[in-house]
Design a protein around this nucleic acid. Structure first.
Lengths: 332, 332
DNA sequence: ACGCGGGAGGTAAGCGTTTCCTGACGCCGG
DNA sequence: CCGGCGTCAGGAAACGCTTACCTCCCGCGT
């Protein structure tokens, strides 16, 4: 009994069709210089043998892998998941594969992963990298083609949400509602959005000296938000602005457990508008970061880069306010 | 000015160290037959040139890519995200990369993605595939090494949660609480868990003929849960068992908006214990599927397979009941 | 002093493609 | 009728690496 070869190569197809390797390659790649009848014969042979070109060998010679790498700080973060989903689907539509790595919020891992995954892919998308700007600038030089999400570096194409503008809008809304003591729960110091937010806070504080705007260091997840509950309540603030929805949700739950009524005693606003923000009680007021769009747009830029075209200009989306039920006037 | 070669190859290192290609390869791969002093010289040359072996070329000859493929039905589903995270981190710890694809709940995409990604990786992990059993069996034969999550096929190593057992426990709990009219919101017909759940429902119905157990077709997300609210209320059931937490959350929110008190008027139990289940109001009673463990264990099996060892036996984890506040006795 | 064994490093053969270059053939024009 | 040119297919190099195999040299034993 004829043992089926473990793997069928282009040579098998060539033998079957009675032509040379190069002809098979040309025929299967649609090279027009091959006689149509011959091409058909080759295709038939390939089909009978169930042949598909080995992508590795192909990549080695062509220098292209049809794969891009994405590095995110934490796969458990709903925002990154959504970005990844938009990105992944857009890339898949263009027949590209996605290699994801989770840097576990570690700057070292970020650098290492970016470098090693870059070597086996055609480009890298760094999603909200936490590393300091100089490090990012240095690294960026070695990574091209590179697209950044929520960070910028030189003229690297990027897409990002304007955290500063959205935070400013939130602060203004709360001020208009009458709040005069507010607290901001800041997270992930490395993230670019932190800088934007800090600037927005500074500007607001300067513009409204009558308002007591306190800043409370905090983590980036629900536990961190819960842990900050006592400090928030002790601060006497009538409104809390959380780094993200996770923090807001943790805080919301924790203060309610302590008997604090939201929004009557304390207004809470989140950031990101994760899918669950609608389902908290009360429904969370937040700023809707269009994460899926960010992912899609990031791919659009990478795709242009890979095609050697000029990428679309860097994009800054302003998150839209999603005013729901955790914000309201301060207690009288 | 000496132009730096775009890419430094093993030949450059060999020239720099004044040795042959093979010696460089051996030295860098820690082959003990190379003289320690020479090895050191090679390593030094490699370091000066900032050389790293081209993974593609290496893969082509070695036949190993240090990469595995994972196919999930929907990246937006928190359970798959968690599985992916456990899997990704475990694989990363073993210096493996992960190529993820989102099949968008499409059976066709599932098959195609599995096949094409398999070719550029060392193995595939199919996460909760939706395709019918015969298709899965056929496909499985061409995919080895393969690991299945939440499905089985022949003697393919697998890890899964025992949805049937957990659902049985939920049903028993509700019965003990006194519920006599219950409704089950079933989702994703293709999924293996649906079969297990159907069997559990059948068995329960047979064992407790006095209980009215109704089944309501439903989708798999929060919107589907919300859409089912009227039907659930109209059914007169005092307890609703949702296909997953997303459905439960949508339902919970929708019935509360209609003035229904949970759990006083209606008990609701979810499934999966997604991170947000703790934060609904009231906190959602659910069954805790250890998704991160599933991911980690899936990798353990793949890892063994790749090492040519016998994989650990297929694993079935029984989700633990997470009794919180959406379940209670039926109204009197 | 010579042969032989063993160890270290070099040579070259792949891995499976793509692609450049060459050669054969046929056709057309001179 | 012959030369030249265009077309199409084959040969072979190249992509960057690993590894089997072979050579060379050294040291030992007789």
């Amino acid at each position: 009994m004829a043992r089926r070869p473990a793997v069928v190569t282009i040579a098998d197809v060539a033998a079957r069709a009675g032509v040379s390797l190069s002809t098979v390659s040309r025929a299967l790649n649609g090279n027009p210089t091959v006689d149509p009848a011959l091409a058909e014969r080759v295709r038939a042979a390939a089909a009978e043998l169930d042949y598909t070109a080995n992508p590795l060998a192909r990549s080695l010679v062509s220098g292209r892998t049809q794969t891009i790498a994405v590095v995110v700080p934490d796969l458990a973060n709903p925002t990154f998941q959504t970005i990844l989903r938009g990105l992944g689907r857009a890339a898949a539509a263009d027949d590209f594969h996605v290699l994801v790595s989770d840097s576990a919020e570690s700057v070292d891992a970020e650098r290492t992963l970016a470098t090693t995954t870059r070597r086996r892919t055609d480009g890298v998308i760094l999603c909200a990298p936490r590393m300091p700007q100089p490090d990012l600038d240095t690294l960026a030089a070695t990574l091209a083609p590179l697209v950044l999400v929520n960070r910028t570096s030189g003229d690297v194409p990027s897409v990002r949400a304007d955290y500063g503008a959205a935070l400013r809008a939130q602060l203004d809304d709360l001020r208009r509602l009458g709040h005069r003591r507010m607290v901001h729960l800041s997270g992930a110091p490395g993230s670019a959005s932190s800088a934007q937010r800090a600037a927005a806070l500074d500007a607001f504080a300067a513009a409204h000296p009558d308002i007591d705007l306190h800043r409370l260091p905090c983590g980036v997840d629900a536990d961190a938000g819960a842990a900050a509950a006592d400090a928030v309540l002790a601060s006497g603030a009538t409104a809390a602005l959380a780094f993200n929805d996770l923090v807001a949700i943790g805080l919301l739950d924790a203060v309610r457990r302590r008997g604090c009524r939201v929004p009557d005693d304390l207004s809470i606003v989140g950031f990101d508008d994760i899918p669950f923000a609608r389902f908290t009680t009360p429904a969370l007021t937040t700023a809707a970061v269009p994460a899926e769009d960010l992912g899609r747009e990031a791919w659009a830029r990478m795709s242009a880069l890979l095609a050697g075209e000029a990428p679309p200009p860097s994009l800054t989306l302003v998150p839209e306010a999603a005013v729901r039920a955790t914000s309201g006037p301060p207690p009288a």
